[in-house]
Amino acid sequence: MNIRQIHPEDCKAIIEAASDWWGRPYSSDMFSKWYIEHFQDTCLLAEEDGKIIGFVMGFLSQSKPNEAYIRIVMVAPSRRGKGVGQALYKEFFKRVGAAGRSIVRCVTAPANKNSIEFHTRMGFIVEPQEQELDGVPVCLDYDGRGGNRVLFKKGIVSSTYEGSL
């Protein structure tokens, strides 16, 4: 497995992979060239034999100078549970730690129990909320469009990274 930065020319292949993995067309502004141009250092792609097997897209917070945010992570269904997501997250942690960030945040849907378990195994804590659904703290209307989310937070240690940031 090779992990590298995502480049703008990867957009089409990422959209195709995401749509294939979801079983329906998947679109997001994050998959656009402008997003990758502006957040390229924290957008990572996992490949094997020239094929995309996973990716993570995140950014360094402009408002909270000690934080980074993981916006989306996807792993090919055939590769889930085989360390791809873990490898992507570890590389993301290295890069944002080298940029002086000590906190990483991310969210998932309350119904996505596999994601909740994955993040907990990766050392994230579920942030307390006023509401709970099925025993899980949930931020209601997280996105302003009615979407409820489980909020995660992880402390990381700054490290030396050999790449560019």
Rank of each mutant, 00 (worst) to 15 (best):
M1E: 02
M1Q: 06
I3T: 11
R4T: 06
Q5N: 14
I6N: 00
E9W: 00
D10E: 06
K12N: 08
K12H: 14
I14G: 01
I15H: 00
E16V: 07
A18K: 02
A18P: 01
D20I: 09
W21T: 12
W21P: 01
W22H: 14
W22Y: 15
R24M: 12
R24I: 07
P25F: 02
D29C: 14
M30H: 12
F31A: 09
S32G: 11
Y35G: 10
I36P: 02
E37G: 06
H38W: 03
H38F: 14
H38L: 13
H38V: 08
F39G: 09
D41K: 13
D41S: 15
T42S: 09
T42N: 09
L44N: 10
L45F: 04
A46I: 15
A46T: 14
D49P: 05
D49R: 13
D49M: 10
I53D: 01
G54C: 04
F55A: 03
F55R: 09
G58F: 07
G58I: 07
L60V: 15
Q62C: 05
Q62A: 07
S63A: 14
K64D: 08
P65K: 11
N66V: 10
Y69H: 11
I72C: 07
V73A: 13
M74A: 15
P77T: 05
G81R: 03
K82H: 10
K82I: 10
G85K: 03
G85H: 02
L88P: 06
Y89N: 04
K90M: 14
E91P: 13
F92R: 12
F92N: 08
F93L: 08
R95C: 06
A98G: 11
A98P: 00
A98L: 12
R101V: 11
S102I: 15
S102Q: 10
V104C: 09
R105A: 01
R105F: 00
T108P: 03
A109P: 05
P110N: 06
P110T: 10
A111E: 11
N112H: 07
K113E: 14
I116H: 00
E117Y: 04
H119C: 00
T120P: 04
G123I: 01
G123C: 04
V126R: 00
P128K: 02
Q129T: 05
Q131H: 14
Q131W: 04
E132K: 08
L133S: 04
G135M: 06
P137E: 04
C139F: 04
L140S: 03
L140R: 15
D141K: 09
D141L: 04
D141W: 08
Y142T: 00
D143H: 01
R145S: 11
L151G: 05
F152G: 07
K153F: 04
K153E: 08
K154E: 02
I156W: 01
V157W: 05
V157N: 14
S158W: 04
S158G: 15
S159C: 14
E162H: 11
G163D: 01
S164R: 13
L165M: 12
L165G: 03
